[in-house]
Nucleic acid binder design. Structure first.
Length: 281
DNA sequence: AATGTATTCAACCGCAGTCAA
DNA sequence: ATTGACTGCGGTTGAATACAT
C-alpha cells in the first residue's frame, strides 16, 4: 500500500532535534505515555511529524536506552543472532537490553559487516567466502588505514556464552511482520499482579539459572542479573501468554532451551535452520 | 594549517501489517 | 470485502566528525 510521507507538511521541522524539542517530547510522554504518535506532536507543542517523534523517543530519549560502546559480549550475540535471524534488527535488539534496532543496524553495517569480510566471511550468509580478500584490492590501503589494520590484527573470533537475559512476559509475541515468536528483552521496570505470569516467570529464571549453573558450575555472578520482569500492557502484542496456559508455557520453555543450546553450539547451521523454522509459525 | 577522504550514526523514507469503520 | 489511519520495520541518506596526506 504505502502512504505519503508524513513529514512533507509545510512548517514541520526536520533534521536534528534541539534540546527544547527533546524536553517537550520527554515531558509529554512522561505525563501521557507512549502511543498516538500522529496526534502527539500537536498536543506536545512540537512542529514535528509523529513518525519523527516516535523515532526520536525510541532511539534516543527512552530512559532505558543504554549508552556507550557495544561490549564484546553484545558484539558476539549480535553476530550469532544475525546468523539466526538475518537483518531483523528489531528482533536482535529485543535480545540486547537497552540497545535499539537502529543502533544495532548501524553497528552491524559499520563494524561487524566489515570485520566479517576481512575475516573471509560473508556477512549476509555467514559462510566462508571463496577467497580471502586481497590486500591490494583494499580501497584505502594506499593511504594506510591503521584502524582497519589494527582491527585485522587484533580482532579474532571470540566466542562468548550468552548472558542470561531479562525478559518480559508480554513480549512473547507474534511479530506483526515476521511472525517470529518474540521474547524480546526489555531493559527495565515492571511488576505484575498476575500470579500465573509470575509463576511462568520463575520457571524461566530457573531455566536460565540451570543453564548458567551447568555452564559455570553454579558460580556465576551473571545469575544476579536474572530477573523476570512482568507486567507490561503493550497493546501491540498479538499473543500474551496466560500463566495458566500450560501448553504455551512448555512450548516457550522448549524453544528457549533450544535457543540456548544453539548459542552453545558453534556454527551448526542445520540446527540454526530448524530453530528458525520452529519460530516461524 | 589546509585539504581531501573515509567513517559514523541520527534521521528520513517507503513499504507492509494490523485494525477499525 | 474494502478502505484508510496508524504503527513498526529495514534500507538509505547526509551532516558531522575523524583521519590521512
Amino acid at each position: 500500500m504505502g502512504r505519503a510521507p508524513c513529514c512533507t507538511k509545510v512548517g514541520l521541522h526536520r533534521g536534528p532535534w534541539s534540546i527544547r524539542e527533546d524536553t517537550l517530547l520527554k515531558n509529554y510522554i512522561q505525563l501521557h505515555g507512549e502511543g498516538n504518535w500522529r496526534s502527539l506532536p500537536k498536543k506536545a507543542g512540537l512542529l514535528r511529524c509523529g513518525k519523527s517523534c516516535r523515532l526520536r523517543w525510541m532511539n534516543y530519549l527512552r530512559p532505558d536506552i543504554k549508552r556507550g560502546n557495544i561490549t564484546p559480549d553484545e558484539d558476539d550475540l549480535i553476530v550469532r543472532l544475525h546468523a539466526l535471524l538475518g537483518n531483523r534488527w528489531s528482533l536482535i535488539a529485543g535480545r540486547l537490553p537497552g540497545r535499539t534496532d537502529n543502533e544495532i543496524k548501524n553497528y552491524w553495517n559499520t563494524h561487524i559487516s566489515k570485520r566479517l569480510r576481512s575475516q573471509g566471511t560473508d556477512p549476509d550468509s555467514h559462510k566462508k567466502l571463496p577467497e580471502p580478500p586481497q590486500e591490494s584490492k583494499k580501497k584505502r590501503n594506499k593511504k594506510g588505514n591503521n584502524k582497519e589494520k589494527n582491527m585485522l590484527e587484533t580482532e579474532k573470533v571470540k566466542v562468548h556464552n550468552p548472558k542470561p537475559i531479562r525478559v518480559t512476559l508480554s513480549s512473547f509475541s507474534m511479530s506483526r511482520k515476521s511472525r517470529i515468536f518474540d521474547w524480546s528483552t526489555r531493559a527495565n521496570h515492571g511488576t505484575s499482579s498476575h500470579e500465573g505470569e509470575r509463576q511462568l516467570g520463575t520457571e524461566f529464571v530457573d531455566i536460565i539459572s540451570q543453564y548458567s549453573n551447568l555452564k559455570d558450575g553454579g558460580n556465576d555472578n551473571d545469575n544476579d542479573d536474572v530477573r523476570f520482569l512482568l507486567g507490561d500492557d503493550d497493546q501491540d502484542h498479538g499473543l500474551v501468554i496466560n500463566g495458566t496456559d500450560l501448553e504455551c508455557q512448555s512450548h516457550v520453555q522448549k524453544l528457549y532451551d533450544e535457543y540456548l543450546e544453539l548459542l552453545k553450539t558453534e556454527g551448526d547451521q542445520l540446527q540454526s535452520d530448524s530453530f528458525v523454522e520452529s519460530l516461524l509459525i
